[in-house]
């Protein structure tokens, strides 16, 4: 764990770092409402491949996205060790399936390096920068486009 107090500089923000396969990613901690273990989903018909289905989150219906598949990585084969990060995006609550949550990083904007030029469309779509921490590379991603236009059925096309 990074010592949170030592690196707390003015514009620092907290990021939740998590692992998918061999890669590490991070999202803004303010988006994350809770982290829970994986439970079997109910499939949604004619959904995109990265939508695994829906689960019951204390009475609400929570869609589960396979973040690996969404980022173009090999789809996850979920097990009890996988975790679901419940994120709140505006009025929408989503569950993101990842391999494991690593730690919480405090990073000020100076520490976040611009995304290296790579050809991948998905990288351009989601990656907002990279962090180098103790020899690890943590990819900062944005979730804005993670589930395109809700409630209009576009995603279910």
């Amino acid at each position: 764990m990074t010592d949170l107090t030592s690196s707390a500089t003015g514009t620092g923000r907290e990021l939740v770092a998590f692992r998918i396969g061999q890669q590490e990613f991070a999202i803004d901690i303010t988006l994350v409402r809770e982290i829970r273990g994986w439970t079997a989903e109910t499939s949604i018909p004619r959904a995109p491949d990265f939508v695994r289905g829906v689960v019951n989150l204390r009475g609400a219906v929570l869609p589960i996205l396979d973040l690996a598949a969404r980022l173009g990585l090999p789809p996850a084969e979920p097990s009890a060790r996988h975790v679901i990060m419940v994120v709140q995006m505006g009025q929408q609550t989503l569950g993101l399936l990842v391999d494991e949550v690593a730690d919480i990083q405090l990073a000020n904007d100076g520490l976040i390096q611009p995304t290296p030029e790579v050809g991948s469309e998905l990288v351009r779509q989601f990656v907002r920068g990279v962090l180098a921490v103790d020899g690890r590379m943590i990819v900062l991603i944005a979730l804005d486009d993670i589930l395109p236009s809700p409630s209009h059925g576009v995603i279910a096309a």
Partner: peptide, 25 residues
């Protein structure tokens, strides 16, 4: 239970419910 709040409309599906085993149907 509404599906639209967190996901969107699904053709052929009106809504969802939660069964006694806690699973969504």
């Amino acid at each position: 239970k509404s599906l639209e709040a967190n996901y969107g409309t699904i053709p052929g599906i009106a809504a969802a419910t939660i069964l006694g085993n806690g699973r969504v149907a």
